[in-house]
């Protein structure tokens, strides 16, 4: 839908999506910081969060926030992320055009194929990390399962640690103009036509 006041921009994210994104981002950073402190016994971080039990509380409740936030993203992105087309495949084959400055890529929808994949990975790893985290928190008595849950929690964390930096980089420095989506929700129409041609076409 075209922006009423300015015909040259269109809205890519609504207020709810923006808010939810930042909730997720903040909880993620909190969880990562405390998670790293757990893994590598970083005393400074522990005391920053009020000692071992304080940090545990922060980690657990941030985890709850993160999980809730993750569930809410489903309403925003899941359908779009699952709609994979031939263009998406071609986009992926061309590396999303990121491999060279002038590469031409097939037209994309509201989310490009990369974003779709990232989202699905975030969702899957997030589900794993949330479920295993809850299990470790609430029911650590069953020993053999606890160990696999601990394993899963860490494996999923590793996935996050690998994709989140790319996500941030690609959505900020690597793709100027993206960042404002998560600030005011709009993008210039031209910007959108270039990157999300199919969506832009639908919107105008």
């Amino acid at each position: 839908m075209a922006d009423q006041k300015n015909a040259r921009v269109i809205r890519k994210a609504n207020a709810f999506e923006i808010l939810n994104h930042w909730v997720m981002a903040i909880s993620f950073f909190t969880l990562s910081a405390t998670g790293f402190a757990y893994l590598f016994h970083i005393a400074g971080v522990v005391s920053f969060f009020g000692g071992p039990m304080g940090m545990k509380t922060v980690h657990n409740y941030a985890g709850l926030v993160f999980a809730a936030s993750l569930i809410l993203t489903i309403f925003s992105y899941l359908i779009e992320a699952l709609s994979f087309s031939g263009d998406d495949m071609k986009w992926l084959m061309k590396g999303g055009g990121y491999l060279s400055r002038n590469a031409a890529v097939p037209p994309q929808g509201k989310l490009n194929a990369g974003q779709k994949l990232v989202y699905l990975m975030v969702l899957a790893a997030g589900a794993a990390i949330a479920v295993s985290g809850l299990y470790l928190w609430l029911a650590p008595e069953v020993k053999s399962r606890t160990l696999s849950m601990h394993f899963l929690h860490n494996a999923a964390f590793d996935v996050y640690l690998m994709i989140v930096p790319f996500h941030i980089y690609l959505a900020s420095i690597a793709s100027p103009g993206s960042l404002r989506i998560m600030i005011n929700g709009t993008v210039p129409l031209e910007w959108a036509r270039k990157r999300h041609a199919k969506w832009a076409a639908r919107m105008t």
Binding site: G35, F36, L39, F40, F151, N154, A155, F157, D158, L161, M162, I163, V164, P165, F166
Partner: peptide, 12 residues
């Protein structure tokens, strides 16, 4: 997994 958490982050 444990080393991967910083290697992965660093690598990314």
């Amino acid at each position: 997994l444990k080393p991967l958490s910083y290697l992965g982050l660093g690598g990314a």
